[in-house]
């Protein structure tokens, strides 16, 4: 149950992180008609943030499914 709660907390944090990164005013910082690596800056920003959020969700759900610290036992 602790794992579930921990997971819920992490995912909620990711939701908040995504909400901030995808909204005004943060997104307006990247609202420039420039190209990075040949791609429009805004386009690159949105897709990068998007990919990172997905990656973090994946990590959060998979880490959360087992209790933290279990892998390191004291037996050495």
């Amino acid at each position: 149950m602790t794992g579930d709660k921990e997971k819920a907390r992490r995912l909620t944090a990711l939701f908040l992180l995504g909400s901030v990164l995808f909204s005004y005013p943060v997104i307006s910082l990247f609202n420039l008609p420039a190209l990075v690596w040949g791609v429009p800056l805004l386009y690159a920003y949105v897709f990068c943030v998007w990919a990172v959020i997905i990656l973090l969700i994946a990590l959060a759900t998979h880490k959360g499914s087992r209790p933290v610290g279990n892998r390191f036992s004291d037996r050495g």
Binding site: A8, L11, L14, G18, F22, L42, V46, I57
Partner: peptide, 20 residues
């Protein structure tokens, strides 16, 4: 331009809350 994207970003955020 990017006006098509929010429709898919929203579900991503919902997915994060999906567990709850």
């Amino acid at each position: 331009g990017l006006g098509f994207l929010p429709i898919y970003i929203g579900p991503t955020l919902t997915a994060a809350l999906g567990w709850l």
